[in-house]
C-alpha cells in the first residue's frame, strides 16, 4: 500500500518533531533581532521593518562586549581543558575496564555512576568555602576541577562501552602479519578507538558547557565566569532597559557551536549516548 501515503505521513511527523525541537530556539532567535522599543510588540517576530542586529553589536563590539566575550573565552577554555583531562583519564580507565582483569573493576564503574547522579549543589558549599581559603575561588582551575565531576563519569561509561566493542584480536592479527606491537596498536586499534574517544569528548563538552550551578557559585567576577552564569548577570544598556535582546543574542551565539556539532556528528552522539547511557 503505503509508499506515497506513508511518505506524506512521515513527512508530517518529521515536521512536527522538528517544530517541537526547534521552536524555542526559533523563538529566542526572533527575540534576538528585536529592537529594545520593539520588545513589547507581543508578537513572535520583530515588527516589520524594525528588525535589528543591534543586540549582536552590543555584545560583540559594544558596551556588553567585555562581559560577553570574556565569558565566552572562559567557557571555551574551561570546558575544553576539563573535557581534555576527563577524556585522557577516562581513556586509560576505560581501556583497563574493557581489556584487563583486575579486582575493583565494578567498584570503579559504580563510583562513576554514583558521581554522575550526585546532586551538584551538595558539592558547591564545601568547595565554595575551601576555594576561598586556598585561593581557587573565581579562577579557571577552581572551575576545571569541579567540572571533572561532570565530565569524568560519563566519559568513563561511554568509553568503556565503546572499547568493549573493539575487536582487540585485530591487534594480534596485525602482529602475526609482522607488525611491531606499537604498529599493531597504532594501525589496528587507534583508528577503531578514535571515533569513540572523539564522541565521548563531544558529549563531555556538552555537559560542561551546560553547567550553571558551579559557574554562578564559584565565581564572582569576569575572571572565570562562564557564559551561562554571565547571562544571568546581564543588564540592559541603561537601568531602565531590560537586557532581553542582549541575552537572546548571546544565547544564540553560544547555541551555534552546539547545533553545528549536532548536525555534523548526530549519528556518533546518538550511539555514544545510548551505549554508555548514564546521564545526559
Amino acid at each position: 500500500m503505503t509508499s506515497t501515503k506513508s511518505k506524506v505521513l512521515w513527512g508530517i511527523v518529521t515536521v512536527l518533531v522538528a517544530v517541537y525541537a526547534l521552536f524555542p530556539v526559533a523563538s529566542i532567535l526572533a527575540t534576538s533581532f528585536k529592537a529594545p522599543s520593539d520588545l513589547t510588540n507581543q508578537k513572535f517576530l520583530p515588527s516589520p521593518g524594525r528588525a535589528t542586529t543591534g543586540n549582536y553589536e552590543q555584545i560583540l563590539v559594544g558596551d556588553a562586549q567585555g562581559l560577553f566575550l570574556t565569558a565566552l573565552r572562559n567557557s571555551i577554555g574551561i570546558c575544553l581543558i576539563s573535557t581534555f583531562i576527563a577524556v585522557v583519564l577516562a581513556t586509560l580507565c576505560a581501556y583497563a575496564i574493557a581489556r584487563l582483569d583486575f579486582p575493583g573493576k565494578k567498584l570503579v564503574l559504580t563510583t562513576a555512576l554514583a558521581v554522575s547522579i550526585f546532586p551538584v549543589i551538595s558539592i558547591v558549599t564545601p568547595l565554595f568555602n575551601l576555594w576561598r581559603s586556598i585561593g581557587l575561588y573565581d579562577t579557571w582551575p577552581g572551575l576545571i576541577i569541579p567540572y571533572l565531576s561532570l565530565t569524568l563519569p560519563i566519559s568513563i561509561w561511554t568509553l568503556a562501552a565503546f572499547f568493549r566493542q573493539i575487536p582487540w584480536e585485530l591487534e594480534q592479527a596485525a602482529q602475526v602479519d609482522g607488525a611491531t606491537t606499537w604498529q599493531a596498536f597504532r594501525k589496528a586499534i587507534v583508528p577503531l578507538a578514535a571515533p569513540g574517544v572523539f564522541t565521548t569528548a563531544i558529549i563531555a563538552f556538552f555537559i560542561a558547557w551546560n553547567d550553571f550551578v558551579y559557574g554562578i557559585s564559584l565565581t564572582s567576577t569576569e575572571a572565570a565566569r562562564p557564559v551561562p552564569a554571565a547571562l544571568a548577570f546581564f543588564t540592559g544598556a541603561s537601568q531602565f532597559e531590560a537586557p532581553t535582546g542582549a541575552i537572546s543574542a548571546a544565547a544564540i551565539i553560544v547555541t551555534i557551536p552546539v547545533v553545528v556539532l549536532v548536525l555534523a556528528f548526530q549519528r556518533q552522539i546518538v550511539s555514544g549516548l545510548t551505549q554508555g547511557a548514564v546521564k545526559g
Binding site: W10, G11, V13, T14, V17, A18, Y20, A21, L22, P24, V25, S27, I28, T31, F206, W209, N210, F212, V227, P228, L231, A232, T244, I247, S248, A251, V254, T255, V258, V259, L261, V262, L263, Q266, R267, I269, V270, G280
Partner: peptide, 28 residues
C-alpha cells in the same frame, strides 16, 4: 530517509544550555 533529520532535530534540545532554554521559555 527521515531518520537522520529526525535524530538531528531531537538532539538539538539535548545540546542546548539549560539556561538558554530557560530564557527562551521565559521570554515567550
Amino acid at each position: 530517509a527521515v531518520r537522520g533529520p529526525l535524530r538531528t532535530a531531537i538532539l538539538v534540545p539535548y545540546g542546548i544550555i539549560t539556561v538558554v532554554s530557560a530564557f527562551a521559555w521565559f521570554y515567550a
